[in-house]
Write a protein that binds this DNA or RNA. Structure first.
Lengths: 331, 331
DNA sequence: GTGAAAGCGCTAACAG
DNA sequence: CTGTTAGCGCTTTCAC
């Protein structure tokens, strides 16, 4: 194995100099630097990660804690994972994955053993069991999502409130004056799911600001329920020409349901969805998507900043991006 | 920070004794062991991962290399990831993830830096760019899948040949004497995709062994193509009452296609699929699934064995498991 | 701008 | 069955 001492000897410098060339933690004359670089290259030297972690008190590892419930939306999750890994590499860090079953105990083990320098927690729930251990450990963490008690934590999330509002703005921009909101199953709101409530609130507030009529209803995941909700929305607002849907499972039934009620999409009713991009693209729905790549990247950057001693904002909300597709046209 | 020396002092033993209690690498009297254990508990000691990796020449980390092409079948992949993490923990190892974009270079970096003790490579392709670096590095690796040149490598895979045969056995067991095989798009066979070819070969061989008639055809991913292939299969064998489908994308069209040709499933034609379990369950299809959990677990165990110096078999083939559902009935 | 040297916390060989 | 001790390869003071 080729060590830093070998490189030092080969380059005719001290080991510390090689170290400093590598870390850039003190200035090195260009001549020395290039000589060291050349030796590193010639000898094929790669610093030993263990030794480095040990001496430097930095593992150069970020632990990525996967969602508690599997399968929420796998493609989006995978994209977050990928973007986290890519972003982490830019900061010279590798990514350790932890799964739900490792729980709080696993977090403590990894933290206490200094196996990771920081934690990234995906798909955080309002009352998340992983939050308490995060508060106790010396390493910083960044949450993707927003727990109920976020005090003292650093979170990144899509700005769901703005997402709801953005949909209204889009519809208003197209000339619609009566809009509806088809939400998640009522149980989702009952259990205080943060993002669902915020989306609806954003929708309602935007409609109020624009001075237009709005109605909102939850819907279960079956055709009957969706049809019933659509019927109720149309009864409340017979002139409804714009519909915002925040319910992935219902998306499949919405167009058919509207059709059954005598409304064609997009001629009679413009539909805007808030859902993963694949869903929307496949069905050609105008939509606000979950910015998976950016979520992952920003989370890593916030963590890297904290590791570098730069304080991070408690909450980073990503602006929603609306993609206009075939399901919404001017009225 | 609480170190091994603190524990040793607290328990009134030497640091090495604590180490041996932890690793179990030499016998310790029950009294000493329990005293040390108690001190560890009281002091809340967790060994420093970096120091351990450094001194022991063991990072206790396995690198999991994700598939090159994303999205092949995410649920199955996620299940493999989860089972790998779970199994790795049983061997006191954590899991580092590497994504496709890190490529061969990333593998070399992680290997040379001794960041991981071994590599697990998912979804290996016949001519996989990740294979050459694996051969050069000192750490052992286990591949999930089978590359063309597997010489000297350790692989785990579903026994696709047996899977094809198993479907035939199932149909024959139900009394079917004329069976068809609807395969992947022809391009898949053209590019020598190992598992596709092996599945078909297993299907054909089993039919031969049982002395029954069989016909096989590829099918593209659209309804027209599936319908055409089904029509051709029925023309070749008008008495066909059993169909094996190895084409996820086509699955959605098969039942409708058979219906359009006047055959009801399962009364007229029994259908057996080779596909991820979710697909089959959702559509109530009899199927042979990809044993994701077992694949991950076995891969870890093989790697752990190699790390412990036990030579591993070059190829571990997992027996296919058939789940009988509504799409296949006795004739 | 560079070198020398002291550990970091743990493991494993050596000794008893 | 247990204690003593010598590093592992790197970072980081301290010194020049």
């Amino acid at each position: 194995m080729v060590t830093i001492a070998d490189v030092a000897k080969h380059a005719g410098v001290a080991p510390s100099t090689v170290s400093y060339v590598l870390t850039g933690k003190r200035s090195i004359s260009p001549r020395t630097r290039s000589r060291v670089r050349e030796s590193i290259r010639q000898l094929g030297y790669h610093p030993h990660a263990g030794a480095r972690a040990f001496a430097g008190n930095r593992a150069n590892v970020v632990a990525l804690v996967l969602p508690l419930r599997p399968g929420v939306h796998l493609p989006a999750q995978m994209r977050i994972v990928t973007s986290v890994v890519t972003a982490a590499r830019r900061h010279d860090m590798d990514v350790l994955i932890m799964t739900a079953d490792q729980g709080a105990e696993g977090l403590r083990r990894v933290a206490a053993g200094a196996r990771a320098d920081g934690f990234l927690v995906m798909d955080v729930e309002l009352d998340d069991v992983r939050v308490p251990p995060l508060r106790e450990m010396p390493q910083p963490s960044v949450l993707i999502g927003r727990p109920a008690a976020a005090k003292g934590l650093v979170c990144v999330d899509l700005d769901f409130e703005a997402a709801g509002a953005r949909c209204v703005e889009h519809l208003v921009g197209l000339g619609h004056r009566h809009v509806g909101f088809l939400g998640a199953p009522s149980v989702v709101y009952q259990r205080n799911t943060g993002y669902a409530q915020r989306t609806m609130a954003g929708f309602g507030a935007a409609a109020m600001r624009r001075g237009i009529a709005s109605t909102a209803l939850p819907a279960e995941d079956d055709y009957e329920s969706v049809l019933g909700a659509l019927r109720a929305l149309l009864r409340a607002q017979p002139a409804m020409t714009g519909l915002v849907v925040h319910n992935e499972a219902a998306l499949g039934w919405v167009v058919a349901g509207l059709r059954a009620l005598g409304r064609k999409v997009p001629e009679d009713v413009a539909v805007v969805a808030i859902c993963p991009d694949e869903y929307a693209e496949q069905r050609q729905l105008t939509s606000v998507q979950l910015p998976a790549e950016e979520l992952g990247r920003r989370a890593v950057e916030l963590l890297a900043a904290r590791l570098a001693g730069v304080p991070a904002p408690a909450l980073t909300l990503l602006a929603p991006k609306l993609s206009s597709r075939a399901s919404s046209v001017p009225r």
